[in-house]
Structure formats: structure tokens, C-alpha cells
Amino acid sequence: MPKAKRKPVLAILSLTCCEGCQVAIFDLGERFLELLTRVDIGDFQLAEEMPDVDKYDIAIVEGTAITKEQKRRLKIIRKKSKIVVAIGACALLGGPQEIKDYRGDKNRLIRQIYPNVRGIDNPNIKSVKEMIKVDYEIPGCPINKEEFLVIINKILAGNKPKIIQQPVCEECIRKNKACLLLLGKPCLGAISLAGCGAPCPKNNFPCDGCRGPRKGIDLDAMKKSLKIKARINDKDIELILQRFGKKNELIKNKL
């Protein structure tokens, strides 16, 4: 006789970030409550204050580890989890907080903001992915809650979900008509990973690549199009590419 199956232990954990990805999970509403009936909660600070448990089957992590304490915690999370799912631009790309690293003046910046900087950690930002092994990625700023639910359900069912490597343009309602790039807007849809449902171009907002680049892109061709069609220069392109801390990703992809 097989033993009664125990429920998987799920933890939803947050490092430094806006917590918008956790809010997106909450925004699933009734469907989130239904999900909770299928798991045991290991840790979820937004909804409970129970003592922490020893092991997680699935740990969902948002944010970047900036303080020493957060870095320590992230390592512990990895050790006690069977599966780590990193969610959002901060955990996967570094997030907007990584912009400071590209400026070359992060130590001056922090002094402008805080009179007393002693003891405040100001490291170069690393994504969760650069610090620990991550089993699954759900990108976006914020994540697409529908995609999140599909992926988590597959993981819970024991499957191995994969995000299809295709450009945001594939999901864009402007595809083949009124393309923002052709209208002269700096849209990164062509190099960015789809799965978001392309809400930005739908709302006349050019894609700025919050989900990071898809595999096998031609960055130089993208830059050339941006220069010719959107009439922006190398510096402007750099500033857009930095927005969610995607530099590491792009360099790796080019190789």
C-alpha cells in the first residue's frame, strides 16, 4: 500500500525589491487560495507568522540579496529547498537597483543619500541566479501572474516547465501592423523573451525588456534598428538596456 501522499511544502520568500511579484501572486485571488489548499506553507511572511520549517519542497524567491544577512539567508534557502524558483526581474537580472553599478559612482551616490554610510551594504548587485543554483525562472517586472500559475502547477505535478524562446513580438497585437519600432519608438520586443502577453506595446509603451533577452539574439542588429528607426544613440540604448540590470545576460547571450 502506498503511503498517503503528504502535501508539498511551499515557501514564498522575499529579498530586497518592491515585492510587486508577491503582490501579483496575491492578485490571483481565489485561484491563489485554491493553490494554497494543495500545499503546506513553509514560509510566507505576508500571510503568516508561524515558526519557520526545516525543509521546503519548493521555494519561490523574489528580489536581490543586498545585505550580508540576505546573502546568508539565500544560501540557507538553497540548502533547505528541493526546488528553487526565482521570480521577477530583480531575482533574475538584478533589477533597477543594478543601475548604480553602471554609473561608476555608487559610493558617491550612497553618500549623497545617507549622511552616515558606515555599516550600510552597497555591494555590486548580483541576481539570485548569480548567487545560487536556480531550478526554474519566471521573469518579468512584474511577473505575469497567469504564467506563474501555469508554471507552478506544472512543477507541482512533477513536470519540468519551460518558457518558449520566442520574441515578445510573437504575442504583440501590433505585430505586422502599427509596430512601435516602425513608428519610431525604442521597442525591444524583438530581442526580449515572450510569455508576458505583451501588455506594454498593447498600451503604446515600448517594450524595455523586463523579462531579459531570449536566447540567440543578435544584439548588434537590434541596436542598428534602434538607431535608424527610433533615432536614438548608443548612450540612450545603453540606458534602456540597463533599466532592469540585464547587462550580464546580454553579454552571456552574445557569446
Binding site: L15, T67, P96, K100, L109, I110, Q112, L239
Partner: peptide
């Protein structure tokens, strides 16, 4: 217990 993100700093020199 949050890390410093320096938002007021990172907006500088941008559009």
C-alpha cells in the same frame, strides 16, 4: 532590514 537601492541616485542623468 532591507538593502539600500538608492532610487534617488539611479534616476539622475536619465530622461
Amino acid at each position: 532590514e532591507e538593502g539600500a537601492r538608492l532610487f534617488e541616485g539611479i534616476m539622475k542623468d536619465r530622461k
